[in-house]
Design a protein around this nucleic acid. Sequence first.
DNA 1: TATGAGATCAACT
DNA 2: GTTGATCTCATAC
Length: 189
Amino acid sequence: MCPLTRAFFARSVHDVAPELIGATLLFNGVGGEIVELEAYHHADPAAHSYRGRTERNAVMFGPAGYAYVYRSYGIHWCVNFVCEQEGSASAVLIRALAPRTGIATMRRRRRITDERLLCSGPGRLCQALKINGSHNGLALDAPPFELTPRAAVPAIVTGVRIGITKAAEHPWRYGLAGSRFLSKPFKPE
DNA sequence: TATGAGATCAACT
DNA sequence: GTTGATCTCATAC
C-alpha cells in the first residue's frame, strides 16, 4: 500500500480533503481513522492565510505535506495538513478521528472515558494525540506522524464549516457518513 | 437541550 | 482592546 506522500498533498485541497476521509492518522503510534475535516485556502476569508504570511501561519505558505499547528482561543491546539504547492497557502483542518490505537493513552491524556469524545473536535484530538506548537512544521511522511491511506472509498458527506464567521457558507466540511465520532452531525440534505 | 462564562494567546484594528 | 478554524463546566429551561 502506498503511503500518503507529499505528492498526495500537492494537489487542490478540494481533491485532497475527501480522499483523506477514512485514512488513518497516527502520532507516536496513537490515533485513528480520520472522519472529519475542513478545507481552507488562501483566497478564503476564513483561512488564517487569507491576509498573507505571518509568523504563525508561515508553514501554510511552505510546501505541501507538512503539519501546520496553531493555538486556538488561547487554549487549544489544532492541526492542519498543508496542501497544493508552495505559496498557495492551502490546508485541511483535521476535525475528528475515530479512535483506533492507543485508546487507553488517549483516555489518560483527555481524562475522560467516553471513546466518542476522545477525538471529536480539533482541540480534542490534539490533546488526545499530544500534538502542540512544537510540532508545527513537521513533515507528514515521517515520524512521529504516520499516515495510512484508506482501504476502500467510504461514503462521504459534505456540509458547511463550523465555528467560523467569515465565508461560513462554503460546503467545505467533509465527513465520514454515519460516523459516531463527528464533532457535530452533518445536516441532512 | 440550550445558552453563557471562563480559560488565555497571537494577530489584527 | 477585540476577535477567533474551541472546549468544558455551570446554570437555566
